[in-house]
Design a protein around this nucleic acid. Structure first.
Lengths: 242, 242
DNA sequence: ACAAAAGTGTTGCAGATACACCCATGG
DNA sequence: CCATGGGTGTATCTGCAACACTTTTGT
């Protein structure tokens, strides 16, 4: 593999869902000097790209490096390149301590991605990453709060126009889980019956002959998403509303 | 102003509407050597950014340089950074002839913008730019065909979710002109009466006490778009469809 | 037996579609 | 007076929202 490109980086906003909340994967950034902690805060996951690497591949690589998972939903949603984006004192100090020039400009191409929180083990390669509920994220490094909020907006938008909710769920999921995802991301309450009527119209959500087990209530039917059927139905789905 | 950043450029897909067709503004790229024309093709408008310049400002600057118009609708819709995007022979030759290194990687941040074709004079600063109907654009330089088709997709999407059609029209416009824009961009035919019913619901489209002049038929009422009313109504307009 | 979530139908209303004729102007 | 696009209303259909009770399991 070639070397890193010094001016282009990719940041990934990795969303996860644990059944209750929408979470983001954040990296612990602690700067120490002679054993003393100088500061400690959090960043999104990201990295520079290799000279011969496509952006999409760089994003997938970063994701794999941190989570050990491949073939994940990934979508580019913006570029962040303000000349001031590395100007905060902590950020400059951090860059200096890592042998980088805080005055050189870095464009960051931002992706968001969706995975089921439980599907991944964060012990992978001993990275210092953790899930944080999106609602309680404090001040992040660089312009990462901006990136996160734009990612949320992009996620909401996308969720309205394409069936991506189950990317946050295990392969087999229940309709209530799916409904909860819509409710949390869109910030609404949805009617159970109306929700299920819509689902019934989506031919690519396929009920299995299989039910939940070990729950202290009527076990729910499990569903899977069929990508092939979805791709076919997409061509027919035209939305001519002005 | 600082100097140019060599690795970051901004490309603008400038759409115009002439009453009949959707057009793109393209730049003539003719390479000559010792008075001999070596090749001649077309590119999108674009330029490198200045070291201390925001991306949005760079896009606005490029637009102003080429058209002499300010305060234009502009929207970022993607980044193009494939390591192979400058690899075609003509492109390499062109870069070399212009003193640039064809092997260095350039990321291009792409914007699309909307203006009324007739509002601008292309003699501005003697640039070699011209309008071309989007339907009959041939092979463009670099990856500009890719950029153009993604711009069209972004435009269609945006048009469905936000009232931006009149950005392609003069300040005062008729409803038939607006309808034609929707028809051409979305590739549909729309019913005149139903279209006007939707318009009537948009309180930010304001009928003037003024009519078309010099047309050989019943003169149409002119409308303007009121940005303030739009911004207010936006907050209420929530779309909770899943 | 009880707690907890799953699952299921009907009705009213609003917004979408389909459709045809008269009007004002310039030439 | 003719050609051209401007402007208008109604009937039907379809999709969305609101709403409450029975079922299955684990403890």
């Amino acid at each position: 593999m070639a070397q890193f490109n010094q001016t282009i980086s990719v940041d990934c906003v990795i969303f996860g869902f644990d059944g209750e909340q929408l979470n983001v994967l954040l990296v612990d950034r602690t700067l120490t000097k002679e054993g003393q902690e100088i500061f400690s805060d959090l960043t999104l996951t990201g990295n520079h790209i290799y000279e011969d690497e496509e952006l999409d591949n760089a994003a997938a690589r970063i994701l794999f490096d941190l989570t050990g998972v491949k073939d994940i939903y990934l979508e580019q949603f913006g570029v962040f390149a303000s000349p001031e984006r590395l100007n905060h004192p902590n950020d400059r100090q951090w860059l200096l301590a890592n042998g980088r020039n805080p005055d050189s400009r870095i464009v960051s191409v931002a992706y968001f991605s969706l995975i089921a929180t439980k599907e991944i083990t964060l012990e992978w390669k001993g990275r210092n990453v953790k899930w944080y509920p999106v609602n309680s994220v404090g001040t992040l490094a660089f312009d990462h709060n901006q990136i996160l909020s734009k990612a949320l907006a992009a996620l909401r938008n996308k969720l309205r126009s394409a069936p991506i909710g189950f990317a946050l769920l295990p392969e087999k999921f229940t309709l209530s889980q799916l409904q909860k995802i819509y409710e949390i991301i869109l910030g609404t309450e949805l009617d159970k019956r109306n929700f299920r009527k819509k689902i019934a119209r989506m031919k690519y959500l396929i009920p299995l002959n299989e039910k939940q087990k070990g729950v202290a209530h009527k076990p729910a039917q499990l569903y899977v998403f069929d990508r092939d059927i979805y791709e076919k139905s997409k061509t027919e789905m035209f939305d001519f509303s002005i």
